[in-house]
Design a protein around this nucleic acid. Sequence first.
DNA 1: TGTACATCAGTGAACGCGCGTTCACTGATGTAC
DNA 2: TGTACATCAGTGAACGCGCGTTCACTGATGTAC
Lengths: 233, 233
Amino acid sequence: MGAPRTARDRARAELTAQIKDTARRQLATGGADRLSLRAVARELGMVSSAVYRYFPSRDDLLTALIVDAYDALGSAAEMAETAVPRADRRGRWRAVCGAVRRWARRNPHEYALIYGSPVPGYRAPADTVAPAVRVPLLMVAVVRETWEDAALARGDADRPLPPVLAAQVEAVTDQLAPSLPAPVMTRLLVAWTQLFGMVSFELFGQLVGSVDPADAFFDHTVDEMADFVGLPS
Amino acid sequence: MGAPRTARDRARAELTAQIKDTARRQLATGGADRLSLRAVARELGMVSSAVYRYFPSRDDLLTALIVDAYDALGSAAEMAETAVPRADRRGRWRAVCGAVRRWARRNPHEYALIYGSPVPGYRAPADTVAPAVRVPLLMVAVVRETWEDAALARGDADRPLPPVLAAQVEAVTDQLAPSLPAPVMTRLLVAWTQLFGMVSFELFGQLVGSVDPADAFFDHTVDEMADFVGLPS
DNA sequence: TGTACATCAGTGAACGCGCGTTCACTGATGTAC
DNA sequence: TGTACATCAGTGAACGCGCGTTCACTGATGTAC
């Protein structure tokens, strides 16, 4: 990136941002699949071919939006988590989960872009991995610290992991939290899928007719999951 | 419906099915959003306007596919569940969950159609509610029977439900399993979101780099959820 | 059993629309000397 | 500080494509008497 030096650089940075903003806004009316370079250009009052000076193709624009979405979600979760006293592990856990849901509800189309059905014909490049891992990293950190203090309920006692799963989980552990026992990381993976499963169900309308609005159900389940991973009350 | 009486009726029923089959196959290359009446007609060797004799609009075709998908998933789960001895509650639980995952993996685009991000601009009619509830009904049945036998671990002891949640859950209970205690039904709702959260994460590529292939993780978590809802081993 | 009429399936042309991407171009901005 | 050249942003026209839906029509199938 680097600070823009010339007027040209500044103009370019600003227009790039404006194109992404406009595209983001247009996601709301049609989803990723209907995102159109021409429509973006039109709204910005420029000719469609001019957008190609900023993004070589529609897919590159999509990739930029995806990376931005992961980063925005990650930042929101990090900010919420940072605001809670370090020692309040359950509070931090709640903060992360609540921030994910809040961000998703405020940005449903960006959420769908990253956690919904994949855009057909689009293949996400590797750049999305690092930003995508920010939320799980926060969940891991809370549990890891609790475990390091020997304050984790259930410890690592659990049903034995089948070898295949144990190997996979150990690979994840090596990446995210070396020395954390595999059973604990496994519980984290369960909680992780639970969290996003709930948020997706709410956003995609699957809870209509049962526990929608989902505030109470969500908060309750977040606490159940905190119990499940072993956070003390 | 009613049995087709005339040759015309039979031809109509068959072509309707063929149109849906073709459309289903085309979901695979583009997702719901790119499903095109013209492409379906082309593949069937008929003129695009002819399709309108069978489905008054693209959205009606989509609705038919959605209802069919819920029904196919429901049937798969019911068949798997029925094959397990009634007394083997955990076996039935595993069968339902496993069947959901298996069907989803075999029909990823139909799964995305019903559990992925909503198709923009499309609003599902009420006809989809009954078929959508078939899988949850199976999960409820297993747990309800176990509870009626007083064999449910954890009974209904649990963290107290906030009033809002209690009210919502009781409404669900009235519909699906009158007399089942609210805490039990709440745990079922958690397991339900967990199940589909996992399947969606696997199918939509979110598990790549961690527990993918997800067989071991899935089976393990299904058992954890069985514990969680209180099924005996 | 045969005829007259109504129903329906499928045709082919058309309307009006939007899309991604390429290309040769003009004119402004930046850089090297 | 001034000039010559290179870089870049944005234009406008065009290519080739596919889409959903409507409409007047022909010809086959079904129904009532």
